[in-house]
Nucleic acid binder design. Sequence first.
DNA 1: TCAATTATGAAAACGTTTTTCAGTAAAGAA
DNA 2: TTCTTTACTGAAAAACGTTTTCATAATTGA
Lengths: 146, 146
Amino acid sequence: MLNQQERSRTWLQELKHNGYRLTSPRKAVVEVMANSDTVLSPAEVYDIGRGRYAKLGLVTVYRTLEKLEAMGLVQRVHRPDGCEAFIAGVEGHQHLLICENCGRVEYFGGDKLDGLIDKVQGDSGYEIRDHWLQFFGLCRACQRNN
Amino acid sequence: MLNQQERSRTWLQELKHNGYRLTSPRKAVVEVMANSDTVLSPAEVYDIGRGRYAKLGLVTVYRTLEKLEAMGLVQRVHRPDGCEAFIAGVEGHQHLLICENCGRVEYFGGDKLDGLIDKVQGDSGYEIRDHWLQFFGLCRACQRNN
DNA sequence: TCAATTATGAAAACGTTTTTCAGTAAAGAA
DNA sequence: TTCTTTACTGAAAAACGTTTTCATAATTGA
Ligand SMILES: [Mn+2]
Ligand SMILES: [Mn+2]
Ligand SMILES: [Zn+2]
Ligand SMILES: [Zn+2]
């Protein structure tokens, strides 16, 4: 796993690679997302990002998140109360473990769903093409403070 | 599993039980939701519901869905493109299999996640309290038509 | 340095959901 | 059945998050 500063640099290179210009507002959004291990809404990215670039506009936050999502660098996180939060993504197929209290996210793999998928496919007649698996709970810090 | 007419009747009784009045707009919303096996947005419930009760208002659709959700009779369905769709719920812990094309939903159980949950819990230090498992694909009808 | 072009943020527009409110209707009592 | 209470309704307005528009500013490569 890259550390956070490396991640920022990589993302900026990646943006450049895709023909996008490297601007101050974009750098601010990239740094916020690349340095966060909790899910953030566009409004939260905006609030934090203005600490790095005071003139940042909310519109640019939306536009930059959209690009980062399209490039697979951030992903949208779905939670019971809504689906408007973003987190730095990881390569390949992974699953999320999300703290219900603070939004801190970890990734895990190792699901063994093939057998279940085959069974459900057979029972239902559906052709299963994708799956979501997410765990919710309390991170270590939030276990202590709640 | 109850059939759909029975489900409507049960839901209306349940509403009455909880101290709510049985009104024509509520009956319309209940019938729409109880008779549908596909996810429906509030606007879709409204459109279909007006076929049963022409004066139905969209506001009442929202208000009734809210009550049905609180009573556990319908549940919100999360999909990659949004989380504003509702489906009739089932008792107990179940998982959804959703047609990406038409929104038809089936339920399945039988996940064996305990081992994985223990492992992820140990690795991460999180206390895992809940999980989501959803499958996406194409229902039988949509396999033929796509 | 310059010109071409992309990117920006303020403001307006948008679609969805929630609130407000005056009128309506359900339900229980008489 | 009629009456009375009170919950419920839908239209309109407000609020909300997101997207579009557009004139200006900044990045980039020449
Ligand atoms: Mn998986
Ligand atoms: Mn389960
Ligand atoms: Zn936490
Ligand atoms: Zn289908």
